[in-house]
Design a binder for these strands. Structure first.
Lengths: 234, 234
DNA sequence: ACCTGAACACCGTTCAAGT
DNA sequence: ACCTGAACACCGTTCAAGT
């Protein structure tokens, strides 16, 4: 999109000695995660990654068949690194915590999250994560359809929130020619008035507010289901 | 990412006569919207757009200073084209309909929606839209903070849903090596069981389910606020 | 005023070759 | 087995020139 700053090659043609331990998936992925969070997804390229690793871009292709495969490996890696709440928690409370976990992935990897939010989790790691979350929804005692819809719409909220917090109104790319402040105050007073609540210091509480709406609804549905067919010592 | 099919130039070097009406923002933007929905955002380029318009890529730069400016103009255009519910509706019902309106933009322009969802609406058109929605939240009779948080988390849900419906689980790019069905059934039974409800024919009802949770919560808050300080003929 | 075409600094990826 | 380097078919954008 836009031309980048001249690349500063300090070391001339000599490959940096320190970085010349052999390439490995681990070394490539850690460097890729760093590079993406430093410069963003848009400018991330195999050529620039090669530069950082002290190798040719094409060396990376010896470990991944394509750039997509590398990005998928990054998704897998950050997913596997995210600790999840214990299985024996009350399912509603566990679902609440899982919402925070998914959001945490966004906060830990804000630039990569654009990729994460828009790609199916259908590697083994991704499916394991989904299976885990859906299992907690299954423990609410609801019918399969209600449970599936609830999981799905809950995910819409959490992903939408995390995406907005990492790439949206406050941090995301802005219009090429933005409206000046005084014009905003004059012509869009409601936006100007609400604006302060859209700032990053409000992210935490706004996220909680919407999450609580969902969690309360989930708890109500679960309670109603227990009422109808009580299990165990009823 | 991946090499594209050979471009089929039917007309050789002759500029297609039909398309040689002079370039204009309107003609460029309509062609761009078509091209994006046909081939996707990733492969959309000024060069390919020029080809479709029967001009050089650089001719487009006479009407927009950069590709970003063009994309922003597209966002403005689809936003301005979306009809909104009448202002005199009950605010809660209007907010519900606005949720469907935002989602409709995604359905009308699924490929462009990835761009829309991730960019600030800070052109005049975008701010007009936001101001309109926030105004309806303002009419709920809640304090400014609650109202702002409610608008924000409601937007998280609607954007997350529309994004998922257009680029997510069912339609989005999948992992480079996906897990085969029998392995899914065996190792991720909860995902396999819920899978049918994630298909496009369930989008409408799943979206409504989550939206209704939000709308009910909004209505409760608004009713509680009216109780506390009734206005007019109380 | 509107459009062109060569050029520059980038991409992902293929392929044949080097160690 | 692991890595390189040239090459191919692309990008967005600058710039000087054409009408």
């Amino acid at each position: 999109m836009k031309p980048r700053e001249k690349s500063r090659k300090i070391s001339g043609k000599q490959p940096a000695k320190a970085s010349r331990e052999p390439l490995s998936r681990e070394r490539i992925e850690l460097a890729a995660l760093d590079l993406i969070e430093e410069d963003g997804l848009e400018t991330f390229s195999t050529r620039r990654l090669g530069e950082r690793l002290g190798c040719e871009a094409m060396s990376i292709y010896h470990h991944y068949p394509s750039k997509s495969h590398l990005l998928n490996a990054l998704l897998d890696r950050v997913l596997a690194a995210q600790p999840l709440p214990p299985q024996d928690l009350d399912p509603v409370e566990r679902i609440r915590q899982l919402g925070y976990c998914w959001r945490q992935i966004g906060h830990d990897h804000p630039k990569l999250f654009q990729y994460i939010a828009m790609h199916r989790l259908n590697t083994r790691t991704g499916l394991g994560f989904l299976n885990d979350v859906i299992t907690s929804f299954g423990r609410l005692g609801l019918d399969a359809e209600t449970s599936a819809r609830l999981f799905r719409s809950f995910s819409y909220y959490v992903t939408g929130a995390a995406l907005d917090e990492t790439s949206g109104y406050a941090k995301g790319p802005s219009a090429t020619e933005s409206v000046p402040d005084e014009e905003l105050e004059r012509d869009f007073p409601q936006v100007a008035a609400a604006g302060p609540f859209f700032k990053p210091q409000h992210f935490e509480r706004t996220f909680a507010a919407g999450l609580d709406i969902f969690i309360a609804a989930i708890r109500d549905l679960a309670d109603a289901a227990k009422q109808t067919k009580p299990r165990g010592r009823a």
